[in-house]
Write a protein that binds this DNA or RNA. Structure first.
Lengths: 157, 157
DNA sequence: GGATCATTACTCGGATAGTGAGTGTCCGAGTTGAAGCGG
DNA sequence: CCGCTTCAACTCGGACACTCACTATCCGAGTAATGATCC
């Protein structure tokens, strides 16, 4: 079980976008974070496909958050990049082998699958409890105001 | 983010072992579940390495649970097979780029990493709330007693 | 008959190939802004 | 001086190689029960 690297980048980008004034192109976001330009574009495309950000083409184009930061949860970003497929997929091995359970006894989901699904739900609930606005506020408490202004200006240069 | 297939097999094996009378060899567990013999052995080795099961070699050998089923949580099995590495590893990209935060400002963990860690803790807590004994009890409610006896006998044949 | 010993078959364990998702990269289609030109 | 046209540069989006972990497999080392042998 491992989380994709692109998820971390995407969340950081959303936080930065929530503080930016206008559209920010992907190459600038990549340089801001010191990561690969081309691969970050892939994660941003996923965000765009999920409707979290909207993209404008041409000169002065870039990405903008589609909703207020307080209405975008971390879970939204994770699912957009990772996909919403459950981490655990029951293969119904209880129906295999010499003592396999007959299908009519398998109307209720496998107990193991139920436990896994419940745990994943807890994980999602926890991620959904934090929004991009919360993360941005935490960053704002640490970064000095003048530096934040300089960063905003650099993003809009 | 995807959970390994071997995890599902390992949990099923633990439930079966909790109901077995004596040691059960890996090939029999594989046939019981209708899965690959050789690959299941790999997951069982992981369980053995983690100390959840103990193995006896030679004829009439096999695997036995090392602790009472009520003292083995699903989380124990998952961590034994998957490893206890956290799903999210912060790469500290906040220190990169033209506006990278200086190290002295990074004594506290990144807010994003904190959210991810908290979510993973919720996931682990949920998995730790269920034991192998709970799963076995749920199975016992569905399977008829005579069939359970037959399965136990087949495991000890 | 009982104990000892060699045999044998069975077990686990780690070392060895194959595959799919994630990682990283590239170039083309489309759009916007600005500059140049004409009226 | 104003509007139109052309241009150019910049943007995103999808299509193309590469790497690593998971999947699947094999064979060797070690052990315990079994059977034969000897006292």
């Amino acid at each position: 079980m491992k989380l994709a690297t692109g998820v971390e980048w995407a969340v950081h980008c959303c936080v930065v976008l929530s503080a930016a004034d206008g559209p920010v192109p992907a190459p600038r976001l990549a340089e801001f974070h010191g990561v690969s330009r081309t691969y970050l574009a892939k994660s941003l495309q996923a965000l765009s496909r999920a409707g979290l950000v909207s993209s404008t083409e041409g000169r002065e184009g870039g990405y903008v958050l589609n909703r207020p930061p307080a209405e975008i949860t971390v879970l939204d970003v994770v699912l957009a990049v990772e996909g919403d497929a459950p981490a655990f997929r029951c293969t119904e091995i209880r129906q295999n082998g010499p003592f396999g359970a007959p299908p009519e006894r398998c109307v209720r989901p496998c107990g193991i699958a139920a436990v896994m699904a419940q745990a994943e739900q807890a994980w999602r609930d926890s991620l959904a409890a934090t929004t991009i606005a919360d993360l941005a506020a935490a960053v704002a408490e640490i970064v000095p105001p003048d530096e934040a202004r300089a960063a905003r200006a650099w993003l809009s240069q």
